[in-house]
Design a protein around this nucleic acid. Structure first.
Lengths: 347, 347
DNA sequence: CTGTTAGCGCCTTCAG
DNA sequence: CTGAAGGCGCTAACAG
């Protein structure tokens, strides 16, 4: 492989000029630049990434953790995010490197390894939780990072050192309720996870807000039964079987249900199976199953998330306290699919 | 960060000795080794990956293409493979780097980029096809690679330069037929892709073999109707809707069907929906959907595939013509799940 | 704008 | 077994 020296010799300039043409072309005279470019093309020169890394002390690589495949229908969201991230990163001249970890402590050891070896110069984390030691470590060690998922500690939400992107589940679910009402549904239930998961609580709040909004519009008093959503909501673990049971409970306590919003496609599927498709159900994540079976779902728009994450990475370190640019909330998209016939569970 | 020189000074040895302790500890005297190790631990020294790469001209990194998310239920298999690969690679001191490509030509450009930049020193390709230009390029340029998927050109199957791992779909489907028969089914149909896809044809062949085997055991003459499988087989595109239509056709021409094997979980799902769960159906890929809904499926054992792929990578270049070690066929696992009630489509 | 000088941290000679 | 040089390919500083 030719090196900068070869190119320099061929173009009749110094090595440094070649380097300039590649890294700061604007400071090189037009004529010289084209001559060098010609030599580069002719020799088929390609910069040697390792050498550049050693010199610049930057890897132009971001690390992403790949969990040991949790399974479940919704596990695929992170994979989709990864696809999107890889594509966007490439466009910015960044590479994506993967690592795995058993737990947070193990992951921190991986941080050490990757940082010390200068293999990587930024991290993208998913699935953050309250008091996450990983973000603490990264902040403490001055490592640039972005999380997909907001920090769930209240005080951290505006931490200018914590750059995050998240999907506004609350807005998404509220919009789904609106859409269901638009197509005639009046009593809309919710199938959620047990309280305590930040994500799930947000989505439930979105449903409650959507229902309250409908009640106001419909002239229902705030104390009325439809404005008290507890009766219309049930909790379930993330499994189809549990979702079926929860749906049964829900129908028992609210036989007037017109439609359901579920916190995940897994739960939505359970509800669909249990009801035989007689009720419109909206899931969350717009997984391949939703598409295959043909039920409505809320898409996280991982593509936007990936783009935002990379934008934020560029700001890391340059942000002031309270800078709103240190985080980004993406509004998901409600994908409505015609109910009933497409499902084929009833007929 | 401390460097080898710092460690050497602290331990009172030369830089080279430190390097030896790290790379070929057996040639260093025990006592020196422990002294150096102590210095390493005390200073918190970590080798600098970029510097090492520059010197050794090896990246210890393998590249994997991440497709722009094809969607579909079965797309997840590659993701699962990626998870497994990352884990296994890490254990061997290798990193996994991702790239994307629009088409084969684009992918070859990526090869160029990654190879010339010395960012990567081996490739793992998935979804190979007959006359794949990618493998040709890699062989021509002496780049180590393994494919997940056998080369579908007949002449290439034993090419000692083409290292591949694949899942034995034929054996898997034959075993599924056997298992269905074991639980009482006598007339077992097949729902496949249109002929021409290597993978699909193999799976169909496995079904035909399994049926013929059952006929022999049952004392049926080879010319009998059950030994002529055409009637029991239908073709469908990879979509739930198409699978439902194909299932209808199949039932029309073979109303005596006891069970079905499908070439994919998508088609299996279509068959299940169409039959309302009244027939046992075995899918392929053991996707989360199969697990969630509870139907049987054939698992590709991506973990074994990943392990085999990495083993093969170590052999690349050292293999002689006809060396059977240049490829590996993994037998998939048939996961039987109790039918009917778990599905909940009927009751 | 261009050229010169000096390493980045490591490992592979080659002598001791 | 250990130590002394040299250089992988690149770019940050400076001097012209």
């Amino acid at each position: 492989m030719p090196t900068v020296s070869d190119v320099a010799r061929a173009a009749g300039v110094s090595r440094q000029t070649v380097s300039n043409v590649l890294n700061s072309p604007e400071i090189v005279r037009e004529e010289t630049r084209t001559r060098v470019a010609a030599a580069i093309a002719e020799l088929g020169y390609r910069p040697h990434a390792s050498a550049r890394r050693l010199r610049t002390r930057r890897a132009s690589t971001i690390a992403v953790r790949l969990d040991p495949f949790a399974g479940g229908i919704s596990g695929a969201v992170l994979d989709r995010f990864l696809h999107a991230l890889t594509e966007r990163a490439e466009a910015r001249g960044l590479s994506v490197m993967l690592y795995t970890a058993k737990d947070a402590a193990d992951e921190i050891r991986q941080f050490q390894r990757l940082v010390d070896g200068a293999a990587v110069d930024a991290f993208v984390l998913a699935s953050t939780y309250d008091g996450d030691p990983r973000t603490e470590w990264l902040i403490e060690h001055g490592q640039p990072f972005v999380t997909f998922g907001r920090p769930w500690g209240i005080a951290d939400l505006d931490d200018p050192l914590h750059f995050w992107v998240d999907v506004d589940g609350r807005a998404g679910v509220a919009e789904a309720v609106r859409r269901l009402r638009g197509s005639g549904a009046r009593t809309i239930g919710f199938l959620g996870w047990p309280a305590g998961s930040g994500t799930g609580d947000e989505r439930r709040a979105g449903w409650a807000a959507g229902v309250a909004e409908g009640d106001r519009e419909g002239g229902v008093v705030t104390e009325g039964p439809r404005a008290e959503p507890a009766r219309l909501s049930a909790e379930s673990e993330e499994s189809v079987a549990a979702a079926r049971a929860a749906t049964r409970r829900l129908l028992a306590q609210a036989s007037d249900l017109d439609a359901l919003v579920a916190v995940s496609d897994t739960l939505a599927l359970g509800a669909l199976i249990e009801t035989g498709g007689s009720l419109p159900v909206v899931g969350f994540d717009n997984t391949p199953v939703a598409e295959a079976i043909g039920f409505s779902s809320i898409d996280q728009r991982v593509d936007e998330v990936a783009a935002a994450a990379l934008e934020l990475l560029e700001l890391v370190g340059r942000s002031e306290a309270g800078d709103p640019r240190s985080h980004r909330l993406i509004t998901p998209e409600v994908i409505m699919r015609p109910p009933g016939p497409a499902l084929g569970l009833v007929g």
